[in-house]
Nucleic acid binder design. Sequence first.
DNA 1: CTGTTAGCGCTTTCAG
DNA 2: CTGAAAGCGCTAACAG
Lengths: 336, 336
Amino acid sequence: MIKSITINELAKIANVSKSTVSKALNDKPDIGAETKKRILDIVQQYDFSPHPFGKGLKNKFTENVGVVFCRDMHPISANPFYSRVLEGVEAEIAFNNRNLMLQFVTEEQTKGIPKMLRERQVDGLILIGSMTREYIQLIQSKDIPIVLVDPKFEIDSCSQVVMDNEHGAFTATQYLINMGHKEIGFISGDMARLSFKQRFTGFLKAMKYHNLPVNEDYISVGGMEKGYEHVLGLLKRKNKPTAIFSSNDINAQYGYKAVHDLGLKVPDDLSIVGFDDIELSHMVSPQLTTIRAYKEELGSIAVRNLLKLVENRDQRPITSVIPVRLIERESVRKIN
Amino acid sequence: MIKSITINELAKIANVSKSTVSKALNDKPDIGAETKKRILDIVQQYDFSPHPFGKGLKNKFTENVGVVFCRDMHPISANPFYSRVLEGVEAEIAFNNRNLMLQFVTEEQTKGIPKMLRERQVDGLILIGSMTREYIQLIQSKDIPIVLVDPKFEIDSCSQVVMDNEHGAFTATQYLINMGHKEIGFISGDMARLSFKQRFTGFLKAMKYHNLPVNEDYISVGGMEKGYEHVLGLLKRKNKPTAIFSSNDINAQYGYKAVHDLGLKVPDDLSIVGFDDIELSHMVSPQLTTIRAYKEELGSIAVRNLLKLVENRDQRPITSVIPVRLIERESVRKIN
DNA sequence: CTGTTAGCGCTTTCAG
DNA sequence: CTGAAAGCGCTAACAG
């Protein structure tokens, strides 16, 4: 650790006691205006920052927030999404003048209670991604404020920030319908994921709302990054959908590949709508029409809510739903 | 901060003084074997972890390592690469039982000395990505151990971890030559970047080594994510290259799009080799032949070197060069 | 309004 | 081998 000026030395320089310096630093009322100014000037001049360890030992706040980032083993899958969430988290933490302590875990490998929590180095925790229910409960048992971002499961009595998955999926499906499609397929990764389940619900509701039958043959779900296989399967049947709603962009991309490999084209032969709006989706051709999730927003709201929980320990759990919106690009063709 | 058992209470339970507990905890020699065992058992039983603030205040080590991650404004560009580096950094930090404090900056916006450094919350710093020279010097002036990962510029007297860019580029180019190509183009982003400069040098050396002329018309560089424009430009000339070495995978991807939009195909009409081996590169069709950079390795070596510097403050700067290797996939055609 | 004092949780000297 | 005491940098209670 680099040593530097302390409150004691500062006090000596200013010719006051260290408690007076402390008062100046912490905007306490019982201090004279000129004294305060004089001290603050010296603080400026010497570029003094109070040492957080001294503070923390005393007042029990670390001013650090912990982030446990559950990364996917299949790195492309969820990571481009969660990386953006992390950026939102970081920005909001910095804005609130806290420090961010990061730990990665995978769904399978969590290494028990995070070190930063065991050592009480953080005031609260943001949990990003699809950690197991058991892991979350383990952390909850330590009685520290936590906020979940896009959890894999429905978790009761826990603050969380989620997307408006159902509405997004409804919108996506309705868009396809409005573009004249009636034979609409649905593909998705692991349906155990809450988000995907909700997106499926939104899909079904839109179909129902528009009095369209849902053809079981047009639905292909499960696995990790199996979009290629899903789309291939759907297109090899005798009667095939004219459009597909994919519950995430990655699988939509893999779908592109399947269409391409069959010698067909998007959107001429198959229209596709995705969900998430990752960077990749406007990089490919044709650019993917998709539902944009405001990923940084998910992160920053999570931090804001966490900070509320930290400041007020008997605040009830907060659930925030972040809106989404349709981004029209080139992957859907109007028919009839 | 969650309160929990302290060394004092532990001492009481074990019926010894807290100094004795401390000795047991820190493997000091002057303590009886049975006493030590008894204490350690109680430590276990109560799941005690010494509070790092108490320790830090005393011994001047925080056991935190700071990571300043310079993210690209154009998020797809460098980020899939650096994200993997970050994973390597995290893993190594966890392995060494440290905590990771993260701050994002952009090249343009650095917000001065990172808070974690100003407050001396970290023992050392890993700087990932293309921050400006001025920023690095600012941090260096604080006299804290730092290690640069893939810096944008040549920086003297500073520990750094870099890829074997020149050799990788040589290998890539030579591979194209061995596949029968003679008219080889080179595209790249901003040539101010050290890595790209070195990759260009490797390209030139390979051409020279094989007595092939370098055609200025086949070289198109500069800008951010301008691979599309670069390739389009090269292919619209009357005499065009049969192959292109792209100094990174992202631009190679954009190159695909250009080829595609001209109604041509990779590798039939143009062979392409990239550099970096990001996830995307085996997701696209045809899968991209590229030079793999071991990104996690870059990160973990950086941490290992940093820790050496922390432990031994008069250790000279360490530079590590991480090897790379060619990954043959589908984007190169053998000709003649 | 200002300063003295105690103490947060820990390590380290040093006396026993 | 063990423990008492001091002190790391800070804040807060309380006298003055």
